[in-house]
Simulated scan of single mutants.
Amino acid sequence: MTRCLGALLAAGLAMAGLPGTGAAQDTAGEDGAFVTFRVLKPEMALKAAQAALEHCRAEGYQVGVTVVDRFGLPQVFLRDRFAGAHVQDTSFRKAWTAVSFRTGTSALHEETAPGTESFGIRFLETALPLGGGLPVMGGDGSMVGGIGVSGAPGPSLDDVCAQAGLDAIEFDIAF
C-alpha cells in the first residue's frame, strides 16, 4: 500500500510540474502555477547604492540613495553625513516610481506634465515623477530593481548619480 501511495505521489508531482520533476517550462518561463523572477542580491544593491553615493560625494553633493527590489520594497538605503532629512523618503519614492512604471523618473516627469493624459499619476501617494529614479534591468531585459537618488542640486544631477550606481553593477547583472 505504501509503495502504491509513493508511486501516486511521484506521478502527481510530475504532472504538477514541480521543479526537479523533469516537467518542461513554457516559453514565458513559467512552470505550472508558478512564475520565475529575479531580484538583486543585497550585495549588488549595496554596491549600486555605494557607487551612486560616492559619485555624488565626488561632485560635492550630499545625497541619500535607495535601492528597491522589483516589487518596490527597499533593499538598501544610504545617507551621506550632511544630506537633508528628506532624502530617505524622496530617494525611496523615486526608486519605487521607477520600478512601478518601468521607466526613469525624468521621462515620467515629462509624460505626466500638467495638461497631459497621464497627469493624474502625480496624485498617487508614493509616485514621485522627479528625476533621480532609474529601473535596474537584468541583461535579459527583466526588471530586477530600482535605484533612487535625492539631494543633489537638481533632479538631472540625481539622475547622473543614479546612473553611476547602475554602471557599477552593469557587468555583474549583464548575464
Rank of each mutant, 00 (worst) to 15 (best):
L9T: 08
A10Q: 12
A11S: 12
A14P: 01
M15S: 11
M15E: 14
M15A: 15
A16N: 07
G17S: 09
G17K: 04
G17F: 08
L18F: 13
P19F: 12
G20F: 07
G22I: 07
A23D: 06
A23G: 05
A24M: 12
A24S: 10
A24V: 13
Q25N: 10
D26I: 03
D26K: 01
D26Q: 05
T27C: 07
A28I: 07
G29Y: 04
E30T: 15
E30K: 14
E30L: 12
D31M: 13
G32F: 09
G32E: 11
A33F: 11
F34S: 13
F34W: 14
V35A: 14
V35C: 10
T36Y: 12
T36D: 11
R38H: 10
L40Y: 03
L40N: 04
L40A: 05
L40V: 09
L40R: 01
K41L: 09
K41H: 11
P42R: 08
P42H: 08
P42E: 06
E43S: 15
E43R: 09
E43W: 04
E43A: 15
E43T: 13
M44S: 14
A45Y: 08
K47T: 11
A48F: 00
A48M: 03
A49H: 08
A51G: 02
A51Q: 06
A51E: 02
A52P: 02
A52F: 02
A52N: 05
E54L: 07
E54W: 01
H55W: 14
H55T: 04
C56G: 11
R57T: 13
R57I: 11
A58D: 12
E59F: 05
E59I: 00
G60V: 09
Y61K: 03
Y61I: 01
Q62A: 14
Q62P: 00
V63L: 07
V65D: 13
T66V: 04
T66I: 03
V67Y: 09
V67M: 05
V67L: 04
V68C: 02
V68P: 00
R70F: 07
R70S: 14
F71I: 04
F71S: 12
G72N: 03
G72F: 01
L73A: 14
P74A: 13
Q75C: 06
V76W: 08
F77P: 01
F77H: 14
F77S: 03
L78H: 07
L78K: 05
L78P: 01
L78N: 06
R79S: 05
R79N: 03
R79C: 01
D80V: 04
D80Y: 02
D80H: 08
R81F: 11
R81W: 12
R81K: 15
F82H: 15
A83V: 02
A83T: 06
G84C: 03
A85G: 09
V87W: 01
V87G: 00
V87K: 00
Q88K: 05
D89G: 10
D89N: 12
T90R: 00
S91P: 01
S91E: 04
F92K: 02
F92Y: 15
R93E: 02
R93T: 00
A95T: 00
A95V: 00
W96C: 03
A98P: 03
A98R: 08
A98F: 07
V99L: 01
V99P: 00
S100P: 00
S100G: 13
S100I: 01
S100R: 09
F101I: 06
F101A: 03
G104H: 08
G104C: 07
T105A: 03
S106T: 15
S106I: 13
